[in-house]
Simulated scan of single mutants.
Amino acid sequence: MSKVKYYYDSETLSYRRVERRKRYYFFKTLLFMVSSAAVGIACYFFADQFYDSPQYKRAVNQNAYLENQLENAQKEIDQLAAVIVDVEQRDNTIYRIYFDANPISDEQRNAGFGGVNRYREFEGYDSSKKVITLRKSLDKLKKRVAIQSKSLDEIAALAETKEELLASIPAIQPVRNQDLTRMASGYGYRTDPFNKTRKFHYGMDFTAPRGTPVFATGDGVVTRADANSSGYGNHIRIDHGFGYVSLYAHLRRRKPYNVRKGQRVKRGDIIGYVGSTGRSQAPHLHYEVFKDGERINPINFYYGNLSPEEFNELLKKSQQENISLD
């Protein structure tokens, strides 16, 4: 109950009751409501600094969840990267070597991305550093996977031709062991039979009687069967593909060839016969192997028809510095 207030009226010399107008009560009520609202709002913001609201708690929990997911994603990417490293090592040290393909360098596999900032859209947030690190790891991983996928495509293509490659490589001795008189001279420096000077001998000489069969050492196409190359006399050249070419020189004069230019031959086919034409001192077969246009040592290609013991014996004889026959 509100108190009754009085005031002293000097004209009547008496106390009179104070009469309140309705407007007074209206403004008083309005002031109370405004003050209450202001106090409530102040309390809300003040309390929010010391007590977590439900919305704030949800935001904190969501942020913690996202941070945890970023860390887990980074760990998974690191694990996948380790798997890719293992596949890359197998690719370089086993698959590509087996199929005679050059290994892929680490610089090529791990190359970064140059140019403009690819991660600008992720900047300016509390988790920007983690997000950008994650994106960089993911992009590098995707690039390494793409390079490895391309490498495996190449290996698959090489595998399809591997059987053809194995059949084409000149992998047997061009004259049978039982037909040999001796292995006269090997690949390396030898004494020239004509001027007695020391010079490099680019093939292997197999001594055998005239008319001894000469065999194609791998599948291929005959590219030459003539006597139009200086020093070789009657000779045959076979293109085996894959960069390999074999040469058979000093074939006999009479009916030296069992094949013709352009003819396809198989490993083991008789292509000609031992003789002593051209720059030759005695009946023998001079045999050479080319890889990508360069002469290489034929001794490395006799695994197709020699036992280990026979190969070691042939290797020993081929390394002796004697007088060559051509």
Rank of each mutant, 00 (worst) to 15 (best):
G272P: 08
G278S: 07
F301C: 08
Y302V: 14
P308Q: 14
G268K: 05
P298I: 13
Q263Y: 09
F290S: 11
V289C: 06
K291Q: 11
R267P: 00
G304L: 07
S276E: 15
K291L: 12
P283T: 11
G293K: 05
T277V: 01
H284T: 08
Q263C: 02
E294T: 13
E309P: 08
Y303Q: 14
T277E: 09
Y273K: 01
R267F: 02
I270M: 01
G304W: 08
G272Y: 01
V274E: 03
D292G: 06
V265W: 00
R279D: 14
N300K: 15
R267W: 02
G293R: 08
I271R: 01
R260P: 00
D269G: 09
P308V: 09
G278Q: 05
I270A: 03
F301L: 15
F290R: 13
S276I: 01
S280R: 06
P298R: 10
G272A: 07
F290Y: 15
L285D: 02
Q281W: 03
Q281S: 13
G268P: 01
V274G: 03
R264T: 14
I270C: 02
A282V: 10
Y303C: 07
N297R: 12
Y273S: 02
H284N: 10
H286Q: 04
Y303D: 13
R279E: 14
G275Y: 05
Y287T: 12
G268L: 08
L306E: 12
N297L: 04
L285S: 04
R279V: 07
L285H: 01
N300L: 08
K261G: 04
D269F: 11
R295W: 11
V289H: 03
Y287A: 06
P298K: 08
P283V: 12
V274D: 06
T277L: 07
R260A: 05
R260F: 04
V265G: 03
E288M: 08
I270P: 02
P298G: 12
G272I: 00
S276L: 02
P298E: 13
D292I: 09
N297F: 12
Y287V: 07
E309S: 14
Y287M: 03
H284D: 08
R267I: 01
Y287H: 14
F301Q: 06
G275F: 04
R267G: 03
K291N: 05
G293I: 10
Y303P: 01
G304H: 09
D292H: 11
G278M: 04
F290D: 13
P308W: 14
N297K: 09
I299V: 07
S307P: 09
G272E: 03
R267K: 15
T277Y: 09
I296W: 05
G293P: 09
D292T: 06
S307Y: 10
G304V: 04
V274I: 11
H286N: 05
G278H: 04
V274P: 02
K291A: 01
T277K: 05
F301Y: 15
Y302F: 15
S280L: 09
L306I: 10
T277C: 06
I299D: 12
Y302M: 13
Y287G: 11
G262N: 10
S276W: 00
A282T: 10
H286V: 05
Y273I: 00
P298N: 13
V274K: 04
N300V: 04
Q263F: 06
